[in-house]
Design a binder for these strands. Structure first.
Length: 155
DNA sequence: GCCAACGTTGGC
DNA sequence: GCCAACGTTGGC
């Protein structure tokens, strides 16, 4: 089983939004980055776990845990002209963008802010989230980093 | 295939 | 709102 960190802007889709969905499950749609697409396709598997990370907000950080509950499949929003992430160059015969389904597992009682993560940068060396200039919305997390962050959260 | 222009991300 | 970093696009 692999571990991941997945970013979302809470104004757009928050951990609470996920928890309120039927079966606490949602497609992680809107990804329009080839590296992330390839990770979905080649590496992410149902049963993997992921940190839910709130970005572009007052207090960015890890706020919860979710489980990957599907393999990669075409993101329907790419075909929808009314959707924000509509891609006119993508076709149903040859879809360009993929998504996975994620299920809410728990909300951290004590979120781990980006500032806290940075304060522990020495222990989290190699974590892509903290790498300068790293902007990927989905990144792999090493098991030791996963455990360390959970400790920071008091879990 | 190069590379400049442009768009996006995301912390601050 | 600013800006640095990075990805994508498209002309050549």
């Amino acid at each position: 089983m692999a571990y991941w960190l997945m970013k979302s802007e809470p104004d757009c889709f928050s951990i609470d939004d996920l928890a309120r969905r039927p079966k606490k499950t949602s497609g992680w749609d809107g990804v329009r980055n080839y590296q992330v697409r390839n990770m979905f396709r080649d590496q992410m598997k149902a049963g993997d776990k992921a940190f839910f990370y709130h970005s572009s907000c007052a207090e960015p950080g890890v706020v919860g845990i979710m489980r990957i509950v599907s393999g990669a499949y075409p993101d329907p929003t790419q075909f929808d002209p009314a959707a924000d992430h509509y891609d006119p160059k993508s076709t149903r015969e040859n879809p360009r963008w993929l998504q996975v389904d994620v299920q809410f597992e728990k909300k951290l009682t004590k979120p781990v802010t980006l500032a806290t993560l940075r304060a522990h940068a020495a222990k989290l060396k190699g974590m892509l989230l903290l790498a300068p200039g790293s902007r990927l919305s989905v990144t792999p997390v090493r098991p030791e980093h996963w455990d360390y962050v959970l400790n920071l959260a008091g879990e």
